[in-house]
Design a protein around this nucleic acid. Structure first.
Lengths: 230, 230
DNA sequence: ACGTTTTGAGGTGTCGACAATTAATGAAAA
DNA sequence: TTTTCATTAATTGTCGACACCTCAAAACGT
C-alpha cells in the first residue's frame, strides 16, 4: 500500500512546500490580490496546522507577496501601477548590471545554449502566432539564464525570489502577455551578440533598453486605464 | 514606577520585535557568524516560545541573515569576500539608480536637510578625528535619506531591509570603519550638488563611483587577507 | 584494536489548545 | 430609522507537547 503515498521531497520541509504552493497560487491569481487570508480556513484547506502556515506567511511577507497588520491578519498584496513601475525601474538597474556581468562570466557552452533557446523561441512564435508559452514563461527563461551567467548569487536571489514573482503576478492578473514578440526576440538576439563579443558595457546598455521598452509598454497601458476610469 | 516598564509598541507583534532584536544581534556580531542556532536555547534566553522564534527565523532566512537546512537547523550566515563584492555590485547599481531618482524627486526642504546632515558630519569628523559615529552610522544616514528621496519604496525595502544589514554586519565583524572620511565627505557633497541641480545622470554617476571606491577598498583588503593566509 | 550496529539524548518539524484582540450581532436609546 | 453600546462569535498571537530525525557515544562482534 506504500504506492498510495504521495511522493514527497524530504529535502524540503512541509512549510517550505506550502510556501511555494502559496506563492504560485498568489502569482497565478488563484488567491485574488487584495483578498483577506483566513488562517484557519487556509490551513484546513491545505490540511496543515496554523503554525506551519504562519511560517510560510512570514516568508511571503518578506517577499512582498502578502501584507500583514498585527491583529488584523494577512492580505494578498495589491499591485498598483506605481509599484509596478518601481519594480521595473529596479529590474532595469539590476538586469543591466547582471547582463554586463554575464558578458564577462558566461562560458561558451552557456552562450551556445542561450542561442538555441532563442531559436526555439523563434519557432514557437511562428507556430503559435507569438502567443502562449513564449510570452508567458519563455521570456523568463531567457532572463534566468543571464542571471545564472552573471555569477552573482545575490542578484539572482533578489530578482528570481522577489521581483520576478511580482511581475509574473501582474501579467497573470491583467492577462498581459509579454510585449511585442518579434521585437523582443530581436532585442534578445542583440543582447546575446553583445555577450558573445564579451562587450559588457553594450550588454548592460541593451538589456536596460530592452527592459525600459517593456516598462513604457506598461506605462502606456496605465495611462489608458486611468483614462477609462476618469 | 511606570518608568521602569519597558515601553512596548503594540503595533508590533512579539515575533516582530524578536525578529528585529535578532537582526541587530546578528549584525553586531553578538551572534557570531557561522555559529549554530539552538532553537530551545535561544527561545529560553529571550523568554519566548519556539513557535514565535521560528517565525522570526523564517523571516531572517529570507533576508539572508540565517541559513537553514531541513532537520539540521539554522546557522548565522557566514560572509565571504566574494559575496560581499556581489553585494557591493548590487548596491552600486541600485544606489546609483536611487540617487538619480532622488535628483528628480527630492524637495528643496529635503535637500536642505541633507546639507545640514553633511555639515554635522564635518563637525563630527573634526572633533573625533574622523572616527566613531560618522564612519559607523553616519554613512548610512546619508544613504537612507537619498533612498527616501527616490520615492521608490521597493528599492528602499531591498536596500534597507536586506543589503545594508549585511554590509553593516560585515563592518562590525571586521571592525572596518567606513572608508576615508574626508574623501567620502567630499564625494557626498558633490552628490548633493548634483541632486540640487536636478542632474539625475550626474547624480547616478557620482553615486556609482562613490560606491565603487568603497568596493575597491574592500577588494584591496581581501587581497591582503588572502595573501596573509597563503 | 578496529569497524559496525544500536541505543539514547538532543534538536527540529508539526500539531492542537488557550489567551488576547478584533469583528459581528443584536438590543436599547436618540 | 439610525446610532450607540454591550455581548457574543471569530480570528489572531502565543504557548507547550509530541513525533521524527540527526548525531554521537556506547555496546557488540570480529
Amino acid at each position: 500500500m506504500k504506492s498510495m503515498r504521495v511522493e514527497i521531497d524530504s529535502s524540503l520541509s512541509l512549510s517550505d512546500r506550502i510556501f511555494e504552493q502559496l506563492q504560485t497560487a498568489i502569482v497565478k491569481g488563484e488567491m485574488p490580490s487584495g483578498s483577506k487570508i483566513s488562517e484557519p480556513e487556509l490551513a484546513k484547506s491545505y490540511g496543515i496546522s496554523r503554525g506551519t502556515l504562519r511560517e510560510a506567511l512570514s516568508r511571503l511577507e518578506e517577499r512582498y507577496l502578502v501584507v500583514r497588520s498585527p491583529n488584523l491578519g494577512a492580505r494578498v498584496v495589491t499591485l498598483s501601477y506605481e509599484e509596478l513601475v518601481d519594480i521595473y525601474q529596479i529590474r532595469e538597474a539590476l538586469g543591466g548590471m547582471a547582463c554586463g556581468l554575464a558578458a564577462e562570466h558566461m562560458t561558451a557552452a552557456e552562450i551556445a545554449d542561450l542561442k538555441r533557446l532563442l531559436d526555439e523561441h523563434e519557432r514557437n512564435i511562428e507556430e503559435n502566432q507569438g502567443l502562449s508559452y513564449y510570452q508567458q514563461e519563455g521570456e523568463f527563461d531567457f532572463h534566468y539564464r543571464i542571471l545564472q551567467g552573471s555569477r552573482n548569487s545575490k542578484v539572482t536571489g533578489i530578482l528570481k525570489g522577489g521581483l520576478y514573482q511580482l511581475m509574473r503576478m501582474y501579467r497573470y492578473q491583467f492577462s498581459i502577455s509579454g510585449p511585442r514578440p518579434y521585437q523582443a526576440l530581436k532585442e534578445h538576439r542583440r543582447i546575446v551578440e553583445a555577450i558573445e563579443e564579451r562587450d559588457a558595457e553594450l550588454a548592460d546598455l541593451l538589456m536596460r533598453r530592452h527592459i525600459r521598452a517593456a516598462r513604457k509598454n506598461i506605462d502606456e497601458r496605465r495611462s489608458i486605464s486611468t483614462f477609462e476610469k476618469g
